[in-house]
């Protein structure tokens, strides 16, 4: 792989974290325009930990994920009873406020004769842990995909667990879920925290991949994009948002096929896709069919499949 390709693939990997974060909330039926805030918080936190405090990278990532989770809990509490557009706009307001706070945030120290740290609207430069510790681009890409794989695996386990079922039940109808004995408040907060953790972790990776973050990156556009990825790729499985990111960044950001008409072509394609498949390419039905096809060969168990089908639809 050449450097350019590694860069693109790594970028797809980190953006997938925000997309997964938005997807997780979509499972509980809520649209968030604000997952980029946790991504930003994770990016800044992990940058501060490694570039300023000179602590190990793993600690930086952990701190990014933890602050992402904490922030998500903080926003999750007051917005619990909001739904639909009100929830979406509340998250948007929060995320934009966070972005502006980062524009105002200055915290710099002198290191090796240079100022490092967040410098308001100028951003946070020289998050160079990866270079200083001789981690190659390929190795870092593998780290990204290792963590992404672990996150996906976690999400798959989650979707098969009782908690995952509770997420989908709340997504269908939270009042009904409550009457079925689902503890709606803790479950929703758990979902928000998990989504914040994933975004925060991705942010940490992002900061170290690019070595430079600025508040403008984390604007509404990133938030709406990460939501769109799930819808494009499909809401049936956690692979859906990934597919969405691959389609967007892989096909469009990296090719020069359509030059000045890129967004015209891409926007039109997405709109047409959503007419044909309003729940994305990998929607619940397709995923269900694939699972059945895969499972039928080794061990046919129709009874089990129907139960699963009900859960998913």
């Amino acid at each position: 792989m050449d450097d350019h390709l590694i860069g693109i693939v790594s970028n797809i990997g980190v953006i997938s974290f925000v997309a997964l974060s938005a997807y997780l909330l979509l499972l509980t039926g809520e649209i968030s325009f604000g997952q980029q805030a946790f991504f930003a918080i994770g990016a800044y936190t992990s940058g501060i930990v490694t570039a300023m405090w000179q602590l190990p990278f793993a600690l930086g990532l952990g701190a990014g994920a933890a602050t992402g989770a904490a922030a998500a809990l903080l926003v999750g509490l007051p917005t619990l009873r909001l739904h639909g557009l009100q929830f979406a706009i509340a998250t948007l307001a929060f995320a934009e406020a966070v972005r502006i706070l980062f524009e105002l945030f200055r915290y710099q120290i002198v290191r090796d004769g240079e100022l490092v740290g967040p410098n308001g609207i100028e951003g946070f430069r020289n998050i160079r842990y990866i270079f200083e510790n001789d981690v190659s681009a390929t190795e870092f890409m593998l780290i990204i995909y290792g963590l992404l794989g672990a996150t996906l695996f976690g999400l798959f386990l989650l979707e098969r667990s009782r908690l995952g079922t509770a997420f989908r039940m709340i997504g269908e109808d939270d009042l009904l879920a409550a009457t079925q004995g689902v503890a709606v408040v803790p479950v929703k907060l758990t979902a928000a925290c998990l989504a914040g953790t994933i975004a925060g972790l991705g942010g940490g990776l992002y900061a170290h991949l690019t070595t430079y973050v600025e508040p403008a990156i984390f604007d509404v556009m990133l938030g709406v994009h990460s939501l769109a990825y799930g819808l494009i790729g499909g809401l049936g499985t956690a692979f859906g948002p990934l597919l969405g990111v691959v389609i967007d960044i892989g096909l469009l950001e990296s090719t020069r096929w359509f030059a000045g008409y890129r967004m015209i072509v891409f926007g039109g394609l997405v709109a047409v896709l959503l007419i044909v498949r309003p729940r994305g390419l990998l929607d619940e039905q397709l995923v269900h069919r694939i699972r059945r096809a895969v499972r039928r060969r080794p061990r046919p168990s129709p009874a089990n499949d129907t139960v699963l089908g009900k859960e998913l639809s």
Binding site: I31, A228, L231, M263, V270, L274
Partner: peptide
């Protein structure tokens, strides 16, 4: 986009946003 596709409509309108802006 029929009933129950509110999110898809919204995302679709976002895709068209990109188109109109370009």
């Amino acid at each position: 986009l029929g009933v129950g596709a509110g999110v898809a409509s919204m995302v679709s309108s976002f895709a068209i946003w990109m188109q109109l802006e370009q």
